[in-house]
């Protein structure tokens, strides 16, 4: 693309973001403020993730972009095209082939490898925001590891609903020190955060924060001993590939209650169908 630097951002901005990434990696789960730039995609649509990816990509990288687990959802297509135009790098839909994966709201079903980077798009980086809307007050709470309010919230959920009714963006404790929002991935995906061999980076453009879970870091979903973390998944098999352990999308087929379920991770589903006997 004429007139633009490789991957859109100028080198100075990339260096600024990389410095923020290094800080984030050094303090797992801690939110590092950074001077987020206006991007050609709107705030709230992945600008944080895009800035992370833009500052990490090199000409030999292979990029996969997914939204809701699929490569062909509109926003994933838009972002992948953006990088194809501004960086000219190879793109792929295969999780196993990618060096950098940018994702919104899912972790791929295919286990990640050491050396891969997964970049999460984060709308609200602050896990305490519903309990304490002031970011300044929340920052104090993180600094002092003052997380009583969050535990009280979970206690109240069990009291009111009999279980913790948080089904996505389920708060986690990183390295037993920082409370973190894993982004609005379904609670079902939380266990994949723990001891993952890949580098996990989280970017919030509008809120101007970067945070990280380095490879092989302990990540624990908050729960009680007698009400352990128990994420839900539709009790069905994928109508296309038959999988029973992947996260499923509900497809409504008519207005008389007809529905079917298919894997949300389109790459995983396709691979399963390709290798099926």
């Amino acid at each position: 693309m004429q007139g633009y630097n490789f991957a859109y951002l100028d080198e100075h901005t990339k260096r600024m973001i990389r410095r923020a990434i290094l800080k984030a990696v050094a303090i797992p789960g801690h939110q590092v403020p950074f001077a987020s730039r206006e991007m050609p995609l709107p705030y709230g649509w992945g600008t944080g993730g895009i800035q992370l990816t833009a500052s990490l990509l090199g000409p030999d990288d292979v990029l996969k972009v997914i939204d809701q687990g699929a490569d062909d959802t509109t926003n994933a297509v838009s972002i992948r095209r953006f990088f194809a135009r501004t960086a000219g790098i190879r793109t792929t839909t295969r999780t196993a082939e990618a060096t950098v994966i940018q994702t919104r709201h899912r972790i791929p079903e295919t286990p990640l490898r050491e050396g891969q980077i997964i970049v999460y798009q984060v709308p609200i980086p602050e896990p305490l925001y519903r309990l304490e809307p002031s970011r300044a007050a929340a920052a104090q709470m993180h600094a002092l590891a003052d997380y009583g309010a969050m535990h009280v919230r979970l206690y109240e959920e069990i009291t009111r609903h009999g279980r913790v009714a948080l089904s996505y963006d389920y708060p986690v404790m990183v390295n037993e020190r920082y409370l973190m929002s894993p982004s609005p991935i379904p609670a079902f995906d939380n266990p994949k955060l723990h001891m993952n061999p890949a580098m996990q980076l989280f970017g919030a453009g509008r809120e101007k924060r970067i945070y990280a879970v380095p490879p092989f870091t302990a990540v624990r979903s908050l729960d009680f001993e007698d009400h352990p973390f128990d994420p839900r998944r539709a009790d069905a098999a994928c109508a296309l590939c038959g999988a029973r352990e992947t996260y499923l999308d509900e497809i409504v087929s008519d207005d008389r209650g007809g529905k079917m379920f298919v894997c949300s991770d389109t790459d995983c589903c396709e691979s399963r169908r390709e290798t099926a006997p």
Binding site: D146, G148, A149, V152, Y155, E225, D226, H227
Partner: peptide, 11 residues
Amino acid sequence: ERLMVSGARHY
């Protein structure tokens, strides 16, 4: 709350 802040984890 104070119990939970002190580490109580059994609902």
